[in-house]
Simulated assay, not measured.
Amino acid sequence: MRNYDYIFAGTGLSALMTVYEMVLSKNFSDKKILLLDADLKKTNDRTWCFWEKPNGRYENLVHKKWDVAVFSNEKYTRDLDLKPYQYKMIQGLDFYKFVFEIISAEKNIEFFNQKIVSFQEEDNRVFVKTETEEFSCHKLFNSIFNPKEILEQDKYPLLQQHFIGWKIKSSEAVFFPEKATFMDFSVAQKGNTRFMYVLPFSENEALIEYTLFSKDLLSEEEYEEAIKDYIKKLGIKNYEILEKETGNIPMTSYQFWNKNSKNILNIGSAGGWTKASTGYTFKSASKKSKALVSFLGQENDFRKFHKRTKFWFYDLLLLDILAQKNQVGSSIFSAMFKKGNPSLIFKFLDEETSFYEDIQVILKCPKGIFLKALFDRLYK
């Protein structure tokens, strides 16, 4: 059995960010680190989008960025000036290549293409079993998401941000490459929170995604029919599909950190690192990976890592509302963006606002349904 200081169960975004931060810190070169995953990360399986100020940590990987985001519903359209932020897009394969190239030069870090079967903590060590081998370590970072533990409880709702996207090239020049469509709620809601998301790369090339915040997935045909209808609505008659992507991101305020032990830390979606109210992951994972590496230099007990904030409770209230009345999502986001300060809203969604700034954003939302959600949650 091979022994390590740290093992990463899964090499998704959060795991790779954490390893990258460990390398940058130069404080772990004497530690043996192992990454385990059944996926080689050799395909462009996803894209990550996020807003931040210019010249961020991963600026060299940004595939495209926009200074303006568009919000729409069936009644109005608003161009959101994002300054001081930019909306940025990073392709999965570019990120994987970048991180793996860096860690491949580190003699103390190994990656094995193996599927993990189980892991358990015994006598201050963690034992990890794959389909072919067994390993041990002092500390395990687990990013393998298990929805079963959430589905078996009813205290915290579980929604899903699920989508199918087409990257298309059209004969007609209909897109505005300087504007990303952040949310377009003009599509039929059908009792859910449904919107189109458009990232234009040129006047005739864009990624178009049909996205829902809801409990249940749709058939593949329903997503794709909605995309076809939207393409037609844009005035496009001739186009080719260059790429397709699909995704399903858990949205929940379930307290994953209660499952952490002294030597096992849940990270990524498995640790609640995804922003519960929006499904955005990249920026949140970047912040938490930096915090984690700093924590490792000071503490030895993973149960001390997580700190719950006021934003966890804000997210919980929104998810409570959408779990009970999924159709009101459009009205909530529309109220927020219709007259709200875009940069303040994005700062709020990044969990960087003061309480005074929180109130400015919250007061833009429909007050009745949030007061009811607050009352119900306090007495639940």
Rank of each mutant, 00 (worst) to 15 (best):
N55T: 11
P366G: 08
I227K: 04
F111W: 01
V126K: 12
K283E: 15
F112D: 02
A180F: 05
K275T: 14
I264A: 09
N204V: 09
S104Y: 02
P147C: 11
G368M: 04
G340V: 03
V99Y: 01
F333I: 00
F302Q: 02
E131H: 13
T130E: 11
E52M: 13
K347A: 04
E133D: 15
N124R: 15
K26S: 14
K41W: 04
L35T: 14
F256C: 02
H162S: 08
T77M: 08
A38N: 15
N108L: 05
W51N: 15
S354C: 00
G247A: 06
H63K: 07
G10D: 00
E203T: 13
P84N: 05
D67Y: 03
L344T: 11
S354R: 00
N192P: 09
K53P: 10
T77L: 11
F163S: 05
E172D: 03
S143L: 05
V174R: 01
R194H: 12
M89C: 14
K290T: 14
G165Q: 09
I103W: 08
I241C: 03
E172M: 02
L199E: 08
F311L: 12
G272Y: 04
G235L: 04
E352M: 00
S118I: 01
V361F: 05
W48T: 10
S72T: 15
Y85E: 05
L16R: 02
Y230S: 08
T132Q: 15
V328D: 02
K31F: 04
K288I: 15
M183T: 08
L61V: 07
E59R: 07
D216S: 13
L242F: 02
L93H: 07
Y254R: 01
N300S: 13
T132P: 10
E131M: 12
H162I: 07
V128P: 10
S286I: 15
G268D: 03
W51D: 12
F135T: 06
K259T: 10
Y156S: 15
K364Q: 15
L16A: 01
Q327M: 09
T130H: 13
E220Y: 06
P177N: 00
D67E: 12
F50R: 12
Q298Y: 07
E121Y: 03
M336D: 03
Y314P: 06
C49T: 13
Y314H: 11
S214W: 12
F119C: 09
E172S: 02
S269Q: 11
D123I: 05
E101S: 09
F213V: 06
Q255T: 03
L158Y: 06
D45M: 05
G10H: 00
E240S: 10
T193V: 10
L349E: 01
K262E: 14
F305R: 05
K179W: 03
G56L: 09
T278N: 04
Y223E: 05
V198Y: 06
I150G: 15
E101L: 03
L319V: 06
K339T: 15
Y156R: 07
Y230L: 07
A38P: 14
S104G: 11
F50N: 13
T11C: 08
G268L: 02
T47G: 10
S354H: 00
L317N: 06
A180S: 06
L34N: 13
L378G: 08
K259M: 12
F119T: 02
P84A: 03
L378N: 10
